Each structure stands twice: as structure tokens, then as C-alpha cells.
Simulated assay, not measured.
Amino acid sequence: MVVPDEPETDPMTSYLLSTFRNITRGRRFISSMAGAFPLPLSAREITDWLEAHPPAMPRSEIDEVVYTLDALCLKAEEED
């Protein structure tokens, strides 16, 4: 996957992108003879991160952003 240059961001966008990046470090995978395949992020992975790093905004807003970014990343992975 080609990684584009990062656009300039405001503090809230930077917080959300950083939060997503860190949550994905706990992503689970399914392994098979064909390889390892990423699973969508779950509420548990988000909760684990937010319990250790109290959020700067409502959980519902974080969930919406994280799930949307996750879906975009998984879709891009499928297309490669």
C-alpha cells in the first residue's frame, strides 16, 4: 500500500489518528495455511487502550472514528 504524505492536522485530528494507530497495535489476526488475516478492531481493543490513556473526547466519537478508519484500512488491505 502506498502511504501518502500526511496533511497538516489540528490537535484533535492528531489525537484521533494517534489513538487509532496505537489501538491497532493490539489488533488480532486469524492464522491459517494461507497466511495471517487481520480481524476488525473490537470494542475490547479500544477499551483496553482508553483505560490506560483516558480519552480527550466522548467515547462514542472515538468509536465512530476508530471503526471508520479501521474499515478503510481493512478495505485497502483487501484491495492490495
Rank of each mutant, 00 (worst) to 15 (best):
S60A: 14
E77D: 09
A36L: 04
V2C: 03
L17M: 07
I62Q: 00
Y67Q: 04
S60N: 14
R28N: 08
D80V: 13
V66P: 03
L39P: 01
L74G: 12
G35S: 05
R59M: 15
P11V: 12
D5C: 01
V3W: 00
E6R: 06
E64V: 08
I23G: 00
M12Y: 09
A56W: 07
A52T: 10
K75E: 13
R28D: 09
D70A: 04
T24F: 01
T68K: 13
V3N: 04
E61Q: 15
H53Q: 10
T13D: 15
T19E: 00
E45K: 04
T9E: 12
R25F: 08
M57E: 09
F20G: 01
N22E: 13
E78I: 07
I30H: 05
E77T: 09
S14P: 01
E61A: 14
R28W: 04
P54S: 02
V3L: 06
P4Q: 11
H53S: 12
H53T: 11
L74D: 11
P58G: 05
D80I: 12
S14Q: 10
S14A: 15
E78F: 11
S32P: 06
Y15E: 06
M33K: 15
T9N: 07
S31Q: 10
T9V: 14
A52Y: 04
L16S: 02
S42D: 06
A34Y: 11
F37C: 05
T19L: 06
T68R: 15
C73N: 11
L16Q: 04
G35N: 04
S32W: 04
S32N: 12
E51V: 10
P54N: 02
P38C: 03
S60Q: 15
T47L: 05
E79T: 13
T47H: 06
R21Q: 14
